[in-house]
Design a protein around this nucleic acid. Structure first.
Lengths: 337, 337
DNA sequence: GAGAGATCTGGAAGCGCTTCCAGTCGGGGA
DNA sequence: TCCCCGACTGGAAGCGCTTCCAGATCTCTC
């Protein structure tokens, strides 16, 4: 039954009164805790129905010292980073896991100064039961702040530097190595790389994977040619690459966006893919399938990344001590290589 | 100064004590409310510094009856809808506006049953100060629940049916009409449409815009050929279209994803774009620029949509009564038409 | 020099819920 | 028959902050 809109929301006291029990019993009945007789439990149940009672989450939070929310913080230097469809998938995964634990998802875009301030305050004031932190760049002070905060923190992708206590990451090195090896197996030897931001661990790790594979094959790795994980930066890098090394036969790009950019640059330069130049990306986002030609790429389980981060956080909040996780990647071969 | 990690967080009482004032004064000083002498204000300030005090948001929320958070609810039937980069941009905009008002963003993917239940509970328990609601399909019960809840609700895109009291939308009809007219101006007369889900207002409105333009030009509009706003559905629709109407010269797709799919289907069918068939999309997402050929499309201000929704919500929470908003669209011509 | 304000101050009453704890009530075993 | 134990119960003390209100203090002005 809907309540009279003008009236205040009913409180637990009113429920208890209507049910003819004490507030304690009503509370226990509501949380179906023990020590409530069947009779009273049902009386409370009825009163709740009659009154249309819904517990006040804030009051509950204050009493239990649990906010019922987990925050997902996207660092990075400007908010447009969030436009990367990568994060949407992380959110889908995280959301599913949090839903299971009945936690709400608080999303914090910590790009602006103001945004960062708010995240710091969130950490210090324990405005959430736990925090997931992603897209940190090297030297980002948030990494320290977060680890010093007395609140569970899970990193999504390791930050540059010493690994934090709890994180979920994907096997960037292995994925990049596999991609490069695939290019080499195709018989290409002049295999170049368009790497991502080298102030992120993902950018570095993927370059390491490329370099490892080249060295293992007895080839000289190209020096890092840095993009910023966006399509235009990939196109620009490819164009520059062609100018310097016209004979390039294969390219490993550190993500699909940049690979798509490379594809565009190659098309504009009149090179055919994969005949002249084979291209491999990383991520396996929608764009890889849509690209022309469809992109061979390193698939990483992005939603699973979010899911596992959230699960780890839930475990942490529950007082457990989970171990870091590294998720596997696998090569998905399509037409571009 | 960081506090001894073992100790509880300092409370306002401790601040007050250290500053030698009452809790009321300390509270007022903190919120820089009036009625606090300069001396005491500074004493409180010092005590806060010394203790590393941070107010407890939950307690504050309980006392003020304001949660300090706004929820963004993405309805839709399965969580994958969120993979559409559209939402990421909405979030960027909304986040900026909420940041200004110092509200946190709670993101609710209300696709699963569990998710919907939680949103309903959020609404009924006033777990947030306000709610933004998007991606509703026809007959979605959430629309009613939300409007009945005694909590500010702003709709992002009108739902099918009577317009709610507060919403922000874009000019779907006008945008679609403009796109279709552009196709007609190009001298194409056999202009078909791939429309979006017709159980959404956006899907319907864009079809209406197309139809209006065709009728105004004295042409027979094609009957609605429905996709679901995804790339594959666009490709499938295009393929079917070609089979039925091999002479088609132009296609208006209700969003960029489907337009990209159409492009792919046309390429696979050996038709050249725009020479044989001109294609126009809607949204102006990244994919439009990346597509081959780059997509002529109806630009809609997505981040602004999010921004305005959040602003409207903030106004509503602040006790004002803002008026609904319809944002303009404009045609962006690229190579595909 | 006194009274009227204006400005401060701190006590106390909440906000709505959880949870400890002391006490009640039956019932089964000795 | 009596005692002890386990299952219930409700009173009361918080959780940490805001805010009303009555009273104290301090300026001015006449």
């Amino acid at each position: 039954m809907a309540q009279d809109a003008s009236r205040r929301q009913p409180t637990l006291d009113e429920v208890a009164e209507l049910a003819g029990v004490s507030r304690s019993v009503a509370s226990r009945a509501l949380n179906n805790a023990p020590h409530v007789s069947r009779v009273k439990r049902e009386a409370v149940e009825r009163a709740v129905q009659r009154l249309g009672y819904v517990p006040n989450p804030t009051a509950r939070a204050l009493a239990t010292r649990q906010t019922g929310a987990a925050a997902l913080v996207i660092a990075g230097e400007d908010p447009s980073i969030f436009a990367d469809p990568f994060f949407a998938q992380v959110i889908v995964g995280a959301s599913a896991a949090l839903e299971e634990a009945d936690l709400h998802l608080m999303l914090c875009l910590a790009a602006s100064d103001r945004g960062r301030k708010r995240v710091e305050e969130l950490l210090r004031s324990k405005g959430a039961d736990g925090v997931m932190l992603m897209a940190l760049r090297e030297g980002d002070p948030l990494a320290r702040t977060a680890q010093e905060a007395e609140i569970p923190v899970v990193f999504g992708g390791r930050p540059v530097g010493p690994a934090p206590r709890w994180y979920v990451d994907v096997d960037n090195v292995g994925g990049a190595r596999g991609a490069t090896e695939h290019l080499l197996c195709l018989g290409r030897t002049r295999v170049a790389v368009i790497c991502g931001r080298l102030d992120t661990e993902a950018g570095r790790a993927r370059y390491r994977g490329y370099r490892d594979a080249m060295l293992a094959a007895g080839l000289d790795p190209f020096p890092p040619r840095e993009g910023d994980f966006t399509e235009p930066s990939g196109a620009a890098a490819m164009t520059a690459l062609l100018a310097e090394h016209p004979g390039v036969e294969g390219v490993f790009a550190a993500n699909d966006n940049m690979a798509a950019g490379a594809l565009r640059a190659l098309r504009e330069a009149g090179r055919s893919v994969p005949a002249d130049v084979a291209v491999i990306g990383f991520d396996d986002l929608a764009i890889a399938r849509i690209a022309d030609p469809p992109l061979t790429t390193v698939h990483q389980p992005i939603a699973a990344l979010g899911l596992e981060m959230a699960r780890m956080l839930v475990a942490l909040v529950g007082g457990q001590d989970p171990t870091p996780l590294i998720l596997p990647t696998r090569l998905v071969t399509r037409a571009s290589a």
